[in-house]
Design a protein around this nucleic acid. Structure first.
Length: 324
DNA sequence: AACTAAGTCAACCGCTTGGCT
DNA sequence: TAGCCAAGCGGTTGACTTAGT
């Protein structure tokens, strides 16, 4: 048993596309569009390809304004920030980088960025240079919170204006994202309900989200909005992020893995047994890139801090703090 | 020069989602 | 409201390229 195949694998061509096939598909779609039916498209075009394959080829390679390779620092920054905030929602990440495809970003993350951020840490263990860089980052800050910049402390939530509400309503994808991420928002919720004085019981965390959302809407930045509303997929999200121990506690006390950061558990936290300190993370081995975005945190005095998207040059600043 | 390992990326697979009947 | 089906999506694969020995 199993799912019926979308096409007859014996009759459709598979594997790399030839330039002739590309040209056929491209010219057809440019003239006629997709017709809203990818399954029927190959026949119309005269290709012996699966509809899915045509769709993928068009979306990832043939459609106009696609950029391949040569990711900029800015793009790196956005991808890293979004990945750490929302995990492997490649389509959402790609939506913030219009010239990039989700497949491209996914490949780039898996082959380059992830290693850039995390992968080298194992090699760095025992590597003098790596240790030096990391210990510089760690020792740069007396309060053991070396990577996260000072963040604005929440004042009062500010009610949305009508325009801002319209903006919220327009962002159905973000709403869906919020719903997916759980929290206070059910399937029936409208984002417009997530405002002060709404019918929902609003806890401190929600208040902070509202405030941050408001700030982000003012700046009209979908990226900022996504980042700041989805920072904490964990059920127990209020932590005083005083440093490594607190972060580890947060991870260990949330049995639900942070979506998209599973590799942290597999690659890093699994090392606990090998650790001589009885389960502490080897923070010095962890790349400073790892925490460009802090989770939602509470201050001891009851105020709030929350992550922000990395600013220009922030990666370098985080990586080489002493050089600034 | 030959071989091997590692890296890259296009394409595939199959599950989920959402629109339509 | 349930079932069907195409689109969308993320994970995985495998062919190809590059780097290292």
């Amino acid at each position: 048993m199993g799912r019926a195949p979308c096409c007859d694998k014996n009759t459709v061509k598979r594997g790399p596309w030839s330039p002739e096939e590309d040209a056929k598909l491209k010219s057809y779609i440019e003239k006629n569009g997709t017709g809203g039916n990818w399954i029927a498209l190959p026949k119309k075009v005269g290709l012996k390809r699966c509809g899915k394959s045509c769709r993928l080829r068009w979306l990832n390679y043939l459609r106009p304004n696609i950029k391949h390779g040569g990711f900029s620092e800015e793009e790196d920054r956005i991808i890293c920030s979004l990945y750490i905030s929302i995990g492997s929602r490649w389509s959402i990440i790609a939506a913030q980088l219009p010239e990039r495809t989700d497949n491209d970003i996914k490949n780039y993350w898996n082959t380059k960025l992830k290693k850039k951020l995390f992968g080298k840490q194992r090699q760095k263990q025992g590597s003098k240079k790596g240790k030096e860089i990391n210990s510089m980052a760690v020792s740069n800050n007396n309060n053991q919170n070396p990577y996260w910049p000072e963040l604005p402390i929440m004042q009062q939530p500010i009610p949305y204006s009508n325009n801002e509400q319209k903006f919220i309503n327009d962002h159905t994808s973000i709403r869906k994202l919020l719903i997916k991420l759980g929290g206070n928002f059910s399937e029936d919720d409208q984002l417009t309900n997530i405002v002060p004085n709404s019918q929902y019981p609003i806890d401190n965390l929600s208040m902070q989200l509202m405030y941050q959302n408001h700030i982000n809407f003012i700046s009209s930045s979908p990226i900022n909005y996504v980042l700041n509303t989805t920072l904490s997929p964990l059920p127990n999200t209020q932590y005083n992020m005083d440093g490594p121990a607190e972060f580890e506690h947060m991870i260990n006390n949330n049995p639900q893995k942070i979506d998209g950061l599973e590799f942290l558990y597999e690659d890093i936290f699994i090392d606990k047994s090998a650790s001589t300190s009885g389960g502490n993370l080897d923070w010095e081995a962890m790349d400073p890139y790892l925490f460009p975005l802090p989770p939602i945190v509470t201050l001891n005095d009851g105020g709030f801090q929350q992550g922000v998207i990395l600013q220009e040059g922030a990666l370098d600043e985080l990586r080489y703090p002493m050089a600034q």
